[in-house]
Every structure is written in structure tokens, then in C-alpha cells.
């Protein structure tokens, strides 16, 4: 069963002359443990796709299925609970709370969900430790580098038992070394069974995904085929 399934998702903003169709009948599925990248230019609809997949916004038509459950059949409260428990979000600008330390930021979603402060903190520490950030647990966001902030936000996205990770340009403001570290972490989460969707315009980021879906003017226009083994790259050229 797919962890995330989008069935003929369309999204229209505005009405009449000012109507803008942001998404046209998008079909997309992401299995547990797999990383899918959505590539497209600015305005192609990729961020809208992500907010709809994460139930932060409702589609105009079509169905979103998360972990086998139809969002349209869930109450607002149930949707909010599912967002807190099952979905982790990673944004380009990190969205960490400035007044909280790294471990407090990471454990906050669990506490909001009713987990005891002690247990939430232990889970937060475990998530930070897993991403090599245990020594930054007591630091505030303004005491961290950009790369560290994004790694903390990934720890927050995967803390507890989250099964779906949604990332919007997760390394947009980072250099290539930190961007690579971020993608390795997302891939690491996938190897533990998390399903991940990364939207990006960056080809190097997208190439970490096993499948890349191309969006243009709100439509899926193409996607990558299963690439052959990388060993084929290492065959000597015929002329050498």
C-alpha cells in the first residue's frame, strides 16, 4: 500500500476572470521507504502539490490518501491529528521557533500530541542523535549554522513515528555540501521506511530520488524511468 496517494488532484484559485488553475488532475503515489522528487519551474504548482499532499490545503477536486485513509472522509480534528502524528514537514526557511532549543523544537510536535514532556524530550534527543546533532541539543536556532538548522528541522520532521516526510526546497539556501548532507538524511529516513516527497528545482537534489516527476503548468508532463545500474557509467569509453 502506498503511504501517499494523490488521485486526480486539481486546484483552482480565484474565480471568473481571475481564476488560476494551479494543478490539473495530478496522480502521484509514494510507497513506504521511497523518495520521490517533484521538479518544476517557479509557478509550476509544485509547492501547492506539497501543501495538498500534507493536508495543509484542500484540493478543489480529487482525493488525497495518506496511509490508506481518505482525507476527505476525515474530520478537521482527525486531519490535524494525522498531520501531527504521521507527517513531517521540511521547509526552505526551516521554520524553527527562535525561543526554543534544538531539542525543544524537535520534541514540540510530540508534546502537542499529548506525549509527556519527558518522553517527548527523549524521542527528540534520539532523533537529533540519529542525525549527528546530539551536541547541538541545547543550542537555540540563532546559535546554529544554516545547515545545522535544516538538519534540526529534519529531525523534527521524522521524530516519533512519522511515516511521511514532505520537503519544499529543503536545501534552497544551503551550499552544495550542506545540501548533500540534507539529502543523505532524508534518504536515511527513507531507508528506515519513511516515504518522502521533495519538491525542488535543483537537479542535483532531485537526483537523490529513485523517481523524479516533472511538473509543468500544474500538470505532470513526464517522469524518470528506473535508471540502469551505475556500474554502466564506469565502462571504458569505446575509443579509450
Amino acid at each position: 500500500m502506498s503511504m501517499l496517494e494523490l488521485r486526480k488532484i486539481s486546484k483552482v484559485y480565484g474565480q471568473g476572470a481571475s481564476e488560476v488553475q494551479a494543478l490539473h488532475e495530478i496522480d502521484l503515489w509514494v510507497d513506504p521507504g521511497s523518495l520521490v522528487a517533484v521538479m518544476g519551474a517557479s509557478g509550476s504548482g509544485k509547492s501547492t502539490l506539497l501543501t495538498i499532499a500534507g493536508s495543509l490545503e484542500a484540493p478543489t477536486s480529487g482525493e488525497v490518501v495518506v496511509g490508506g485513509a481518505l482525507l476527505s472522509e476525515m474530520s478537521r480534528n482527525d486531519q490535524a491529528r494525522m498531520r501531527r502524528r504521521s507527517i513531517g514537514y521540511v521547509f526552505q526557511d526551516y521554520n524553527l521557533l527562535a525561543g526554543l532549543t534544538s531539542v525543544e523544537n524537535v520534541s514540540l510536535p510530540l508534546e502537542l500530541d499529548g506525549v509527556s514532556a519527558k518522553k517527548a524530550r527523549a524521542a527528540g534527543m534520539a532523533a537529533l542523535d540519529e542525525l549527528g546533532l546530539a551536541d547541538r541539543a541545547s543550542h537555540y536556532p540563532d546559535e546554529l549554522s544554516g545547515g545545522e538548522r535544516q538538519r534540526v528541522s529534519i529531525a523534527r520532521a521524522v521524530v516519533g513515528d512519522r511515516q511521511l516526510l514532505l520537503a519544499d526546497e529543503p536545501s534552497g539556501a544551503l551550499d552544495s555540501t550542506n545540501g548533500e548532507a540534507v539529502m543523505r538524511m532524508i534518504l536515511g529516513a527513507c531507508k528506515r521506511g519513511v516515504a518522502a516527497v521533495v519538491v525542488t528545482h535543483d537537479a542535483q537534489l532531485a537526483s537523490w530520488a529513485e523517481r523524479v516527476v516533472f511538473l509543468r503548468d500544474g500538470r505532470v508532463v513526464d517522469q524518470t524511468m528506473s535508471p540502469p545500474s551505475p556500474e554502466s557509467l564506469l565502462q571504458p569509453a569505446p575509443h579509450s
Binding site: W208, R216, D222, M225
Partner: peptide, 25 residues
């Protein structure tokens, strides 16, 4: 022309996926 561009874009990304796998391993 947009379709022509997309054919080449997909091919390049598929190559990049293979190179990235090497980096990963």
C-alpha cells in the same frame, strides 16, 4: 520545443541519478 527540452532534461536527470547512486555507495 518544450517537449524536446523535456526529453533531454529527463535523460540528464536519469544520468545524474546514476552518478548520485555511486556517490551514495
Amino acid at each position: 520545443v518544450h517537449e524536446v527540452i523535456q526529453v533531454h532534461r529527463r535523460y540528464l536527470i536519469e544520468l545524474m541519478q546514476q552518478w548520485t547512486r555511486l556517490k551514495e555507495d
